[in-house]
Amino acid sequence: MKRILAMAGTVLLAACGHDVRTPAPLGALVVPNQAPWLILATGPEEVLVRGLDDTIKLSPEPSVATAVEAQLRAGVQPDYFTNLTIACDDLKTQMNVDTDEAPDTPKLDLSLRCTVNARGLIVAHEYSATSTATVAAGSNDAAYGRALGVLLKDAADQIAGKLAADVRVSRQAQP
């Protein structure tokens, strides 16, 4: 009797459209935070991969915001000077696959807004970047989870370059 109930429960659960999330390991992008001068507010908890037959829900660990913050800090660190603070928010991610044009190439759009306070000179900008990677056609969901780390690193590095340029300009504008 217990087996019949267990099988019936399994069938019922399989029939329900339960929420399946694919892990996306981002730990390699994060280093310990020893520089509190750059902070990024929390962002999306999951990344949806759209354009495939079924939308894939990636569940990044650690969070996208943590990984992007670490990449931005590493990219801007060489241009750091005392009394520099950078606060970023409004983090947005969008991951798509164009199955007609490039079915093996997921694209990530990453955007955020940062306010740079360089010794009292305050400048705010919106930053965005687009990154692509290759995933074998017909890959499983885990391949897209692994691709997210590559895409995030590339897009965050692009934004870090733009942010570092703004920091250098702010520093030069100092009296």
Rank of each mutant, 00 (worst) to 15 (best):
T115I: 05
L26F: 05
E126A: 07
P175S: 09
V76W: 08
T130Q: 14
D19W: 15
G161P: 03
H125K: 02
L29F: 04
Q71F: 00
D166M: 09
Q34C: 00
Y144Q: 03
R146C: 04
L151I: 10
N33A: 01
D89G: 14
A41D: 15
P32R: 00
Q94M: 14
A70K: 06
A129V: 09
E61A: 10
S59K: 13
L151Y: 11
C16W: 12
N83T: 06
F81V: 05
Q174H: 01
E126L: 03
T130M: 15
E46G: 11
S131K: 04
D54C: 09
R146Y: 14
L52M: 12
H18I: 10
T22P: 10
D154Q: 12
S139F: 15
P44V: 07
L110E: 08
P175C: 08
R21E: 15
T66N: 05
D54G: 04
A147P: 03
G27W: 04
L112V: 06
V135R: 04
A102N: 09
Q34D: 01
T85G: 06
N83F: 12
T105G: 02
P44W: 02
D79S: 07
G120P: 00
L58V: 09
A15V: 06
P78K: 02
L52C: 04
R168H: 04
L52K: 07
V116E: 11
D19N: 15
I159A: 01
T22S: 11
V20G: 02
N83D: 14
S170N: 12
T22I: 02
V167N: 06
L48R: 15
A137N: 08
L110M: 04
P60C: 13
Q158Y: 06
L108G: 03
A28G: 08
D141T: 12
F81C: 04
L48I: 15
A173N: 07
P32Q: 03
E101L: 12
I4Y: 14
L108P: 02
T93I: 10
D90V: 10
T99N: 07
L148N: 01
P78T: 08
A156W: 00
G17K: 03
C114M: 06
A14V: 07
T132Y: 12
Q158D: 14
T10N: 12
L48T: 10
V68H: 03
L108W: 13
W37E: 10
T105F: 12
A15N: 05
T42P: 01
K92I: 09
T105Y: 09
R21D: 14
A142Q: 14
T82S: 13
A87I: 13
E101N: 13
D54I: 14
T115H: 02
I4W: 13
D54S: 15
Q174Y: 05
R119H: 05
W37H: 06
E101M: 08
I86C: 09
T82I: 11
G43V: 10
Q172P: 02
K2Q: 11
T42D: 14
T99F: 01
T85F: 06
V116R: 03
M7K: 06
G149L: 02
D154Y: 05
V49A: 02
K92D: 15
G145L: 09
G27H: 08
V135D: 11
L12W: 12
Y127T: 03
L110D: 07
A65L: 13
A15G: 07
G51P: 09
S63P: 06
T85Y: 03
P36N: 11
L112F: 12
G161M: 10
N117R: 01
D104P: 00
